[in-house]
Amino acid sequence: MLAVNFLILAAVLFSIGVFGVIARRNAVMVLMSVELVLNSVMLNLVAFSQITDSIDGQLFALFVIAIAAAEVGVGLAMVLMVYRNRRSIALDELSEMKG
């Protein structure tokens, strides 16, 4: 199999994830899009592991899985907190940083 198969699939997923991060209004949906981005990176890592014939890429993919679990936990906790304080998780209403 050609290595670019995996890599291009990962690139497509990555771009879709980026689109989701930009387009979505609901904070949970943004987090889901971030998961798409992370998964595409992991797909890349596994593909590199095959290309270089070493398991390092797979190990890093496992690290990314752990990090992603942590990220989702903290991220959703923050979303809950925001929801509790404002009764809404629409990101465009959270514009305290407006310049």
Binding site: F19, G20, V21, I22, A23, R24, R25, N26, D92
Partner: peptide, 11 residues
Amino acid sequence: DLNNSSWGLGI
């Protein structure tokens, strides 16, 4: 209204 008003920027 799951999307932003400026969602088109994403494309």
